[in-house]
Simulated assay, not measured.
Amino acid sequence: MQTMPAHAAHHDDREIETLEEFDAAVAARGSLAGFRVQAVDLTDRTRELLGTDTAGAVFLGCPMREEAAAKIRGDGALVFPPVPGLPFDPYRGLVYSPEELFASLPDGYEATPDARAYAWFQRTKADGDIYASMLRAVHDDSVSDALDELLSGARVVGVMGGHAMARGSQAYAGAARLGRELARAGFTVATGGGPGAMEAANLGAYAAPFDDGMLDDAVLLLAKAPSFVPSVTDWARTAFEVRDRWPRGGTSVGIPTWFYGHEPPNPFASHIAKYFANATREDGLLARCNAGVVFLPGAAGTVQEIFDNATPNYYESRGEPTPMVLVNRAHWTEKLPTWPLLQSLAEGRSMQARIALVDRIEEAPEALKRLGG
């Protein structure tokens, strides 16, 4: 089973994103000239900063004492100070964890950093303030950089599907088994990071290291709060009950957005790359699914994702087409007849050999393998 470190080692050698990396660079090189230091608290590293060459370095959102800041500016370094009063760090060097986004959940979801970031977004997105839009853009670019580092070398399979799939339903349990099987096969499972089918697939990946009975028990426990409506707080608390009962589960990725702020991120994705700009998030999610995508039944959002994925496969703009597996024949040929259009687009092109329609969710992993995932 593939695992992902909390912080991948594949980033630019000049980037420093943790205090440990800062200390190691100072000890090994005696210089930070030309480095990029990102969202590291340097309040207790004044002596090191005063005694180290920082010419040409850039410090992004690093708390530090004023004497240190004055010295490194004198060296010719650029210092972008932390932005006070924000519920998020625009310069962050790592993707989010569930614990970080859901901190303060005992006080209710409204008290969490996730809910406070959404509230800030709602206040600022329509006021035309260039400063707020710049902060959102810097944040999203930082998250993309962190996600690229995290997934470097991973074989990523996306699982897409609707947010309305209820905990406790057969469909939810099936999506969870799919996520578990993909994770056990060595894939990194990536979803839109929200509730419903997305949560189920992340849950399945979380369950991968445990015996098979664990997933059945977890699904039963989660059914106490089948939806994030009417209470996100109860929905999230139930998820953390599962995590507390079975700690140290498997890894996966969730890529949600504050654009759909009424949908909270699910706590079963070990790594959460959350964006303000939904367009950046959508394109980035599908672009990183280098081993294929499984599309479970969904509505407008899932239809959009199918054709967002089909377009680069059609034009081969990202290289060789990646596998696309649609699950539930009746849904994709009758209720929302997406499959016939996808077939027509693929006809005579190399992507024709990379698309499949299956009836049952249990058939998806084999179809993915057959298509070259």
Rank of each mutant, 00 (worst) to 15 (best):
W246P: 05
V143W: 00
G168W: 01
D127F: 07
A239V: 09
H11M: 02
D140P: 08
A103Y: 01
R73C: 13
G128Q: 09
M1R: 06
L220Q: 12
V232K: 15
V58M: 06
M1T: 11
S133T: 13
R354S: 03
L178H: 03
V156P: 02
A299K: 09
S270Y: 00
L368T: 05
K274D: 04
T311A: 08
H11L: 04
A205L: 07
P81T: 07
L101V: 14
R243T: 10
A55N: 07
N328Y: 04
G128P: 03
L60F: 15
V325F: 03
Y315M: 10
P230E: 10
A273V: 08
P5I: 06
D53C: 11
R288D: 08
F121P: 04
K71G: 00
T338P: 02
P247A: 10
Q304N: 14
V26K: 08
S344T: 10
E48I: 04
V229R: 14
A117F: 02
Q38G: 03
A25P: 01
H262N: 08
G93I: 01
W258I: 08
L94P: 00
E21D: 11
L286P: 00
G301W: 06
A117W: 00
D23K: 12
V40E: 11
R123M: 13
M64T: 03
G186W: 05
L178N: 04
L147W: 00
P195W: 07
V138W: 02
N328Q: 12
L150S: 03
A287S: 09
G193V: 09
N278T: 12
N309W: 05
R288H: 06
D212L: 11
A310P: 00
A201I: 08
F88A: 03
K274A: 13
A208S: 15
D234Q: 12
